[in-house]
Write a protein that binds this DNA or RNA. Sequence first.
DNA 1: CTGAAAGCGCTTACAG
DNA 2: CTGAAAGCGCTTACAG
Lengths: 329, 329
Amino acid sequence: MKDVAARAGVGLKTVSRVVGGEPGVTPDTERRVREAIDALGFRRNDSARVLRKGRTASVGLVLEDLADPFYGPLNRAVEEVARAHGALLIIGSSAENPDRERELALALCARRVDGLIVIPAGDDHRYLEPEIRAGVATVFVDRPAGRIEADVVLSDSFGGARDGVAHLIAGGHRRIGFIGDHAHIHTATERLRGYRAAMADAGLPVAGSWVSLGSTEPERVRAAARSLLTGPDPVTAVFAGNNRVTVTVVRVLAERTPPVALVGFDDFELADLLRPGVTVVAQDPATLGRVAADRLFHRLAGAALPPARTELPTRLIPRGSGEIAPPAV
Amino acid sequence: MKDVAARAGVGLKTVSRVVGGEPGVTPDTERRVREAIDALGFRRNDSARVLRKGRTASVGLVLEDLADPFYGPLNRAVEEVARAHGALLIIGSSAENPDRERELALALCARRVDGLIVIPAGDDHRYLEPEIRAGVATVFVDRPAGRIEADVVLSDSFGGARDGVAHLIAGGHRRIGFIGDHAHIHTATERLRGYRAAMADAGLPVAGSWVSLGSTEPERVRAAARSLLTGPDPVTAVFAGNNRVTVTVVRVLAERTPPVALVGFDDFELADLLRPGVTVVAQDPATLGRVAADRLFHRLAGAALPPARTELPTRLIPRGSGEIAPPAV
DNA sequence: CTGAAAGCGCTTACAG
DNA sequence: CTGAAAGCGCTTACAG
């Protein structure tokens, strides 16, 4: 910039004005400056700008997994809102690892992102308190923040699971299994709670062997599904706790006669093309992301809001698998 | 940092040493500095650091669409490699819009990312020449760079499509349709070229009405598929140019008797669970991303490499839909 | 082992 | 309309 100013025979500030598109420069001066810029191949350094201005026009997103189709629309919605506000998005994935989440979130803060959106992997976010106090707007999405007060945007996992299981019960099922994610994941336990609530509401007992929490790896889920179906007290229907579980359960059930009913939490592409179509409790991940990002930029715009929890409703989509009747006794 | 130094009664440089983990500080001094840091809630500002050091330890990724399942593994692979090199990833999506791609890439350069990975939306990348000359390592992935010499990593679209169509021909088909993406998208025309090559190799004519390029929107694809199947010279098999096209064609074909054969470019989740399973020409998007990112960091490490083009092979996966025989005449 | 000075490349506030 | 000075928060030489 110094070189450009020298070459154009103007002051530093004038170059800054031209580059920044500020008014108050004669067309002639501007032309000289632009010529110098082109001749020297000058490119403004935004890092210096950021240092001086305070704001970086960037937000950080600590996401779970870039390749998980469930999070695709959520991540995209965040990116779209950021873009609409002229902010760049700096991302990193926690891969479900709390230490990695922490390391990443703090690295983003050191880069002085204006705000932070976190899909929590861990359940203790006190490490972010100093950052939030220092002015980093922070919103948690898909799962709640742990041990701090903060904005949270998530789906109604409890209600969604309860509705899905109630749907199976209404179809005549009395022995229903539940296969979910690890017990330390908030959505997993909320959905399990919904399952138990629906069963209790109908006055149905739940055998210990009907509930299986753990990894969503296909092997683990396959084993869990088989054990639900073959025990002394086999289930006639399965409720799957998330998209990854559902897909594996579909594979297991495809081989069974008589057919076993299935309702899965989370919608997924082609669920309607399978035979039978897969009945699901659908979340709206794009809205989850959009609401979280809107909240973030609302805060960045200066709104002094108390931390709030936003819970989005789910929607039951019957497609066939959840309407399979239990075998006649 | 100034405040910390004052409070600890030491020089600025000593604080810098403690924060940066440099050696040459007595344990006692270090303790005093750390106390001051905690008391004042000091957090190092990496922007200032970047300004002074030259390198930002960040790379930019201009991606196509965060929610497209095909790109999920590619994006993730890039993120993983960046993370392994201690770099953060700054992203933005072009949404297939060349202007947006350009704006985004230049914004990332202004932030002084060390390197740039671009999934091209446009076909003229001369705007990046000054940046590359100024030292921004740049790698293009999935599609080639336009009008500049640069590193490119992509799949063998031509060969993959040729193999897929040859597979249909080997199964007895002589009238095969092609439905692909917009003609200005490089992979679309390469795959069309592969289709024509396979037909020519077998001495088969191609009716103009059998080829349809355009948007991958379901409506457009559905109309194209129906027209291929109902014209005066209806096809007995369809080759779909990418994952989005394939999924829509599957829906159309599900309603047809006699069954129509289908081979799609790109694998997709659950392709094996559909009835019939969908035969595809599979790319390896994760490897695409990993190879591109490796190349980038190789350059960043100082390797003076000439621009290279890396082409990854595809793999035909027969699952049923591509093995449907043509109806007996 | 420790620190004072200079500077990274911009913008802010002020003066002409 | 234009510019010289100061400073954003660090690190890099260099000297003690």
